[in-house]
Design a protein around this nucleic acid. Structure first.
Length: 150
DNA sequence: GCCAACGTTGGC
DNA sequence: GCCAACGTTGGC
């Protein structure tokens, strides 16, 4: 089983939103590296750190899991969607995604500043490759974040 | 709102 | 295939 971190802007879709709906297609990923992680490496049951970005206190706020095989991101086909991509079609989809389902919220958010301050965690892509919206997490990092959020 | 980092596009 | 222009991400 693999561990991941996935970013979401809480104004768009927060951990509370995920808790409410239970499961959600992870639409709108338009970065090849992030897509490739979903398409090539994610397995049903993989565990996900849910991270709030572009907000007052950027932080890991909860845990989710991968709930589907990868499939075409339908939002790319919808001209009304802000994720519309004319270069993607149902016949030849450019973007893929997985469904994510809610597991739990952390007792307390693990903030970006505390992650940066933690020697065990400042190797994370979150710190070094800050613009990557889906990234792998090692088991050590996973355990450390959960301990800090308990 | 600013801006640094960095990915994508397109002309050549 | 290079690289300048441009767009986006995301912390601050």
């Amino acid at each position: 089983m693999n561990y991941w971190l996935m970013k979401s802007e809480p104004d768009e879709f927060s951990i509370d939103d995920l808790q409410k709906v239970g499961q959600e297609p992870w639409t709108g990923i338009r970065n090849y590296q992030a897509r490739n992680f979903m398409r090539d490496s994610m397995q049903i049951g993989d565990q996900v750190l849910f991270y709030h970005s572009s907000c007052k206190v950027p932080a890991v706020v909860g845990i989710a899991k991968v709930a589907s095989q990868p499939y075409a991101d339908f939002s790319a086909f919808d001209p009304e969607s802000k994720y519309f991509d004319p270069k993607s079609s149902p016949e030849n989809p450019r973007w893929q995604m997985v469904d994510i389902s809610f597991i739990s919220k952390l007792a307390k958010p693990v903030t970006l500043s505390s992650i940066k301050a933690c020697p065990e965690l400042n190797t994370m892509a979150l710190v070094n490759r800050s613009r990557l919206s889906i990234q792998p997490v090692t088991e050590q990092e996973w355990q450390q974040v959960l301990a800090m959020g308990a």
